[in-house]
Nucleic acid binder design. Structure first.
Lengths: 206, 206, 206, 206
DNA sequence: ACAGACGGGACATCCCGTTGTT
DNA sequence: AACAACGGGATGTCCCGTCTGT
């Protein structure tokens, strides 16, 4: 076996890291990046601030680690969905489902919004940001998406596949935000309806 | 007339208020609510913090006043657009134009996003928040929008007019955010294309 | 009159600055730079940490301001001493007195030692450091000191006037330190004796 | 024999201790006591903080152990020098050489300065401090030094042998500090020149 | 003996809002 | 109305020393 037995230290480390990221998720979503307090995150995780700084370099670092972790699991989930599919039409259907589910999620969209705002306002946050971007964005996106979903329509008003994915996810984040903002007007059901419509419009799937 | 002639003093006061709001706009958009510093706002306006507290009660207050001011001028502009229109089709066209312009604006969408986030996280912010909401939202919205744009489609997947307006504006805010986040992928031109598609999808105008 | 009446604000500012620097002197000397607490300095001055940051940019800044202030008053005092002197011999006597007094001072030597250590360990502390240096050190030192004290002896073992001044002040700082370290062995009287001997040796005044 | 053969285990332990002290020397000299980080010391020694706390009780303890170790080896070296000497004149010459070498050393003087400052500021540091003092200072110093160097001159301005030794070493520490502070003005060559002059002045050796 | 994780607690820094002044 | 100084209080960051495990 190449995987050696994990020691208790390693187990503890892993457990703490997950506890911290779990707590960070709650607090960052609830309070936003700036208002989130590391002390509260630690407390929620049953640890102290000292533990946070044993695992992460800074508040920024734990935030980015959280986004990265979400992105990776998100991507893995999607890959699984699509692996079992054989036709472009099926891919599109799977992708559509992913979109709708994404809009309906109450956590990830808000986290992504925070991340977008943070990134715009800290363009020099450095290499860590690069890694997170790579976890969200793929290389050579357009061809990858074209292979998945078929090429984009041609024409003046057409939108490339990659742009559609990005803009779509961004807009759906805001849709969930809106649902939280005016829950009476924009229910979770409405969110799903709208998400579907937007997907169809962006990817022009008759 | 109840409105008396403004004195020189009042003019000066009014000017300061506008200077402050103008500076606040820049700083709040650039840094976000939490990171924005009142000192910097004052400095940019050529005043000091004392001036801010002469005109506003708190940081929250100047932020909300800014959003309210934008909302009112926005609404006035739209009203003007529509007043000259006579048919529902023309209304829809005018409204579509408003949507596309909104998405292309580089300030107001970001401000609105900040406002949404702030509101969600400070639901008990009190009466000031109410006034701002009223500036953005109308009473009896659905019927107002229906009168303007015609009734929404019926059916399981249909979306009410009011919900469409809210969700649409929210999503377009995020679209502009995306344009700032990935300018290479989502250009300002793409923003307008997508804004149009989303409008058509939401309001189902063949 | 060119000097306009100071406002109460300016008076208060000046007073607070002096209070803070006075308190800083006590604490920095007693505890050293690292162990000194800004809170204690503020408290001793009857102000709060907020006040410190209204007057100085950082802990480093208040420390350097303190050293600079001391250096300037020190230099002014010496200049006064020497102005009234007419011959080189009288200058030397005045300088010797200054040396002995310096060694006997219980504050300034320790402050200078802290400053030396700080400077060595923070070579990149920037322009502020330059200003402080200029307050302590003169330009074109050698000729200035030569004019004051006569030229240095020639020969292999001779020491330039400027080097003698610097090394001398440094060593006397440590002498005072030693007096604090072993008060029984090195009394304040011994300090003055030794300071005189060292001066004579360095400046080779028979 | 009470000293039994060291086992392999004990050798390893001894080696670690020396590694740690070597690393500590570098870090304490470079950063000063307060700024020195135990983590960095451990890393430099190729160990972890756990190892430090296996060998020493605290940060203070390793610092004092370091000073003590230096002092002991220093004293041993000097004893060797002097053992081979037969006349007081030769002793004085040997002692002078020791002084000049001390001033030229780039480590021990700085360490001693740190120790002096630390001691002044922690007078109640307890028994550990006593041990270190005994390593540096001898009992019945004056008679010991008088035997070595001849009695001190009599007279108002005379300085006892013991005081001269202490004050001398203290001042030379600061001399090396000055060389690091203004290397252009006070070169290592100048340091040796001045050290010699100061020695002659303090011990009044024609 | 040594490694690694974590607690615990301190502290510089920051900035909003208040107070007295002009 | 506007300025300027200051209080007040929070919080990210840091690091020593302990404790468990190997």
């Amino acid at each position: 076996m190449t995987t050696k037995q994990p020691t208790k230290h390693e187990l503890r480390t892993q457990e703490t890291r997950e506890l911290l990221l779990g707590a960070a998720e709650q607090i960052f979503i609830r309070d936003g990046y700036e208002q989130a307090e590391l002390g509260e995150i630690a407390e929620l995780a049953g640890r102290t601030k000292g533990a946070i700084y044993g695992h992460f370099k800074s508040k920024e670092d734990i935030f980015l680690a959280l986004v990265e972790s979400h992105a990776l699991s998100q991507r893995a989930a999607m890959r699984k969905h699509i692996e079992s599919s054989t036709s472009i039409a099926a891919n599109i259907a799977a992708f559509r489902q992913f979109f709708v589910d994404f809009a309906g999620d109450e956590k990830w969209p808000l986290l992504l919004l925070e991340f977008r705002l943070y990134t715009i306002r800290h363009p020099d946050a450095g290499e860590r940001l690069q890694k997170v971007h790579e976890a969200i964005i793929r290389q050579d996106e357009e061809s990858a998406y074209a292979a998945l979903l078929g090429p984009a329509q041609k024409g003046k008003a057409s939108v490339s596949r990659a742009a559609a994915v990005h803009a779509g996810l961004g807009m759906l984040s805001a849709l969930q935000l809106e649902a939280k903002f005016s829950p009476l007007l924009v229910s979770q059901g409405t969110v799903k309806n709208i998400a579907g419509k937007v997907f169809d419009a962006l990817f022009e799937t008759k």
